[in-house]
Structure formats: C-alpha cells, structure tokens
Design a protein around this nucleic acid. Structure first.
Length: 377
DNA sequence: TGTGCCGGGAA
DNA sequence: TTCCCGGCACA
C-alpha cells in the first residue's frame, strides 16, 4: 500500500512530461498569443491578392474570414474563404503560385524581427521605414509604423487595381541578405502579373514591367520614364522544388500524403520560436488538393523553406483553425515515450505459447515481464 | 481485455 | 544481480 503509492506517483509523473512534449509539439505552430497585434493586423501587409479569383468581384460576404479581419480588405483582394468558394483548378493553381509568391516575401518576418543592426551598421528604424515609403497609390504605411499593410481603403476605391504585395525588390533592398541567400538556391525566379484576370507570368522583371505598362497601364513609356509603379503590380515567384523542399527534403511535391514520418528528422521540436510543424501539415499536396477543412488555408500553407515567413503568415489561419492544424499532423507520435518503445512483435511469446498455467516454462524474461528472449521477433 | 514489456523497486 | 510487479501501449 504505502509502497505502491510512490511508484504510481512516479509512473504518473513520467507521462505528464511526455505529454508535455507532445503538447508542445502540437502547439508549436500555434502562434503567439492574441495579446499581440490583432489578428491580421500584423499580417495584413502580406495578404495576397489573387488576381484571377473568379468570384473575387463579389462584395463582401458576411461572416467570412475577411470579415473577421475587420473588413480591412476589399473583398476582391482578400484570400477567399473556401466554404463558399468553388475551387477551379486554375484558380487553385493561382493560389499555389500566390503562395509561392509569398515565399519571396519570406524574409520579412524574420527581418522585421531581426534588429536592423543585423544588416546595417547604423541601425535606424527610420531608415528602412523610408525605404518603405512608397509613392502614393501604392501601399501605405498609414496603418502603423512599420506595418506592412497597404492602404486597404485605396484598394477598395479602385477595384480594378491589383493589390500590390511587398515588392521583392524592396525586400532585397530592405532586408538584403536573407533574400539574397535564398536566391543562391537553384530556384527559377518568375514574375507574375498581379492585375486582376491577368496573372501573366514572365521570366524577366523588365518583361513584366513592359507587360504591365503596355497592357494594364496603357503606357508606351520608355522604361526610364517609369515611375516604378509597375513594380507594384507584379510579384516575384520562386519556381522550383528546392524552394519548397529546402529544409523539408522529405516533403517533396511527390509526397502523396501529409503523413510523412521521414520528415520528422528534419523537424526541430526544440525550436519553439519557429513553428516547425507547419510543414508537416502543409504538404504541397494539401495546397493542391486540400481536405475540406483546409481549403481556405491551403494556399498559404504551401510548404517552403522559410519558417520565419510561416511565423507571420500562418498565425492568422492557425488562430482560426488550430484544430485543423492539429488534425493534419497525423504522423506526430502521440507520446514521445511511445516512439521510443520497441514495436511489439508478431511472434507468440512464452505467455501465449505455454499459457499462464505453465509459467515455469516461460523464459526468464517473460517471467519477469521483460522482453521475451525465447521467441524473438 | 489480453498481451508485451518498460521502468523501477525490493531482496 | 536477480526477482518481481505496476502500469502503459497496443492489438
């Protein structure tokens, strides 16, 4: 009695730890608590227009996610809520491309967090804020200092104007190294027009600018006359699997399901700061053929190598869909201890063979409730 | 619910 | 070191 208590207490004490690990693993992706900036506020700047969204023209749908973001976005530019959205293949592809485009912005959270000193010997928040300053009509820094939301109001005012994302060039300028580092990989950079109903993808920025000038802005202007406005109407896409698989080598687009145990060695559960678990549930396949619950998040959950970016993008959805996220990490061991446990063999053991009645025939290990040494697996 | 066996205590 | 068993995961 008295002897059994401590034992059971110990036994209980074991698992809470293991569960703690498990919970941590599961929770890791859950974004910082809502006490920060309201959902969406910190990410508004990263919201991405889907130029070819066929139903985008519909005025705001009440009760949609966009509504939850306090109507800061014009319905035409918001990431659609899939519940009512028919997912045509092309639009899906565009979403994937849009998500890929987000990868080009992937340095922003990292770098926004990183002190300016990391890149500049003379750090001054104003310096890069100046860098952010855009001509009127592009994005605005009106909302908050350093907040990368563009002016949603102006976006609403001109429905035919695409909502420009953070130009990668600016990202280069502002954040420099991380983006450059990314360029080192063998990704092919494409440029996608963000004008509605266009989505044209060209391989060169100049070509894209010319396209925008000619087709959308109706200008014949020479490049040197450019006011740079075109820059905001296209985005840079990293087209290449290595961008997706870098750091997630197991999560190749070929991976048939999201259950990718081999990917776990790449996950760093210890790294609390980065939601490393996202990639697991965000297999590219999910983006292409998301389960019903994940429809809306799939485009932004496209895997890419930059976890820091996920930090910024994913929280919106995770906050809204923490349960889905949890549900889509099937390969996670329920308990760490269970993982360490030797899998049970199929062979019959002494107990089964001889039965409880002939316990004396059991091997010693079986008698001692240890792993059977007679009928090895 | 039965089985296999890990973890750990007692002798 | 040997013996034993609580308790857990799994089928």
């Amino acid at each position: 009695m008295a002897a059994s208590n401590p034992r059971s207490m110990k036994a209980e004490a074991r698992w809470p730890n293991a569960e703690g690990l498990c919970q941590r693993a599961v929770r890791a992706p859950v974004p910082a608590p809502p006490q920060g900036p309201p959902v969406g506020s910190g990410v508004a700047g990263l919201e991405f227009p889907l130029p070819q969204e066929p139903q985008a023209a519909n005025p705001g749908t009440p009760g949609t996610w966009a509504g939850a973001v306090a109507g800061r976005r014009t319905p035409s530019a918001q990431i659609p809520v899939p519940a009512q959205r028919a997912p045509p293949g092309k639009a899906r592809l565009d979403e994937v491309m849009a998500a890929a485009a987000l990868t080009s912005l992937s340095t922003s959270p990292l770098c926004l967090e990183a002190p300016a000193t990391a890149f500049s010997p003379e750090p001054s928040p104003d310096v890069w804020k100046e860098g952010l300053a855009r001509p009127p009509g592009s994005y605005s820094s009106s909302s908050n200092s350093g907040d990368w939301g563009w002016d949603l109001a102006s976006d609403q005012s001109s429905p035919s104007t695409p909502s420009p994302p953070l130009p990668p060039e600016t990202a280069h300028f502002l954040f420099g190294e991380p983006t450059l580092r990314k360029r080192k990989s063998s990704v092919q950079v494409m440029f996608q027009c963000l004008w509605k109903n266009c989505g044209k993808v060209l391989s060169t920025a100049s070509g894209m600018q010319r396209h925008i000038r000619l087709v959308h802005l109706g200008r014949q202007a020479e490049p040197e006359q450019s006011d740079g406005e075109e820059d905001f109407y296209y985005t840079e896409l990293d087209v290449g699997v290595d961008a997706l698989t870098n750091g997630l080598s197991s999560l190749t687009p070929m991976t048939p399901t999201a259950t990718v145990p081999p990917a776990f060695p790449h996950l760093e559960l210890q790294s609390c700061s980065s939601p490393q678990l996202y990639p697991v549930c965000c297999s590219p396949d999910l983006a292409l053929a998301p389960p019903p619950m994940l429809n809306s998040v799939a485009p932004q959950q496209v895997c890419h190598s930059d976890h820091a970016h996920q930090d910024l993008v994913a929280p919106i959805h995770l906050e809204l869909r923490a349960t889905e996220v949890r549900a889509c990490t099937p390969a996670l061991p329920s308990k760490l201890g269970a993982n360490l446990r030797k899998p049970r063999g199929d062979a019959k053991k002494c107990r089964k063979v001889y039965g409880m009645d002939h316990r004396d025939l059991w091997c010693t290990a079986c008698r001692w409730k240890k792993a059977c040494q007679r009928f090895l697996d």
